[in-house]
Computed example of a mutant assay.
Amino acid sequence: MNCRFIALPDPETVSIVKRIFHMRCMGNSFRSIAAALNQEGIPSPRTLYYQQLKKKNIFF
Rank of each mutant, 00 (worst) to 15 (best):
L8A: 00
M1G: 14
S15A: 10
T13C: 05
K56V: 14
R31C: 01
H22G: 00
R19N: 03
R46P: 04
L53Q: 15
T47K: 14
E12R: 05
A36E: 13
F59D: 12
F5H: 07
C3E: 14
V17F: 07
H22V: 05
R31A: 12
I58T: 13
I33T: 03
M23A: 04
P45M: 06
V14W: 01
K56M: 05
S15P: 00
F30Y: 08
S44Q: 12
V17R: 15
R19M: 07
G41T: 01
V17L: 13
K18I: 05
Y49K: 15
K55G: 06
I42E: 05
F59V: 15
R31L: 04
C3P: 12
M23R: 14
E40S: 12
Q52C: 10
K54S: 15
S29H: 00
L53H: 15
Y50E: 04
M1S: 13
D10T: 03
I33A: 00
I58Y: 09
H22L: 06
K18N: 06
A35Q: 11
I20D: 02
A7F: 00
K18A: 02
R24D: 03
P45I: 03
N2Q: 12
N38A: 12
F30A: 09
N57P: 12
E12C: 01
A36T: 14
P45S: 07
L37G: 05
I16P: 01
G27I: 00
A36N: 09
C25H: 10
L48V: 04
V14Y: 01
Q51K: 13
N38M: 08
F21D: 05
N2A: 05
F5I: 08
I58H: 14
P43L: 00
R4L: 02
L8W: 01
F30E: 10
M23Q: 10
N2C: 02
R19H: 07
I42P: 05
D10Y: 05
P9A: 06
V17G: 09
R46C: 13
V14C: 03
N57H: 10
I16R: 11
K18T: 03
L8H: 02
C3G: 12
Y50A: 04
A36K: 15
I33C: 06
A34P: 02
N38E: 08
Q51P: 08
S15Q: 09
K55S: 12
S44I: 10
H22K: 12
P45T: 05
A7L: 07
L53T: 08
Q52M: 14
N38T: 11
M1N: 08
A7S: 03
I33N: 09
R46Q: 13
A36V: 09
L48F: 12
N38D: 09
E12A: 09
R46I: 14
R24K: 14
A35G: 03
L37M: 13
F59E: 13
I16Q: 04
T13Y: 02
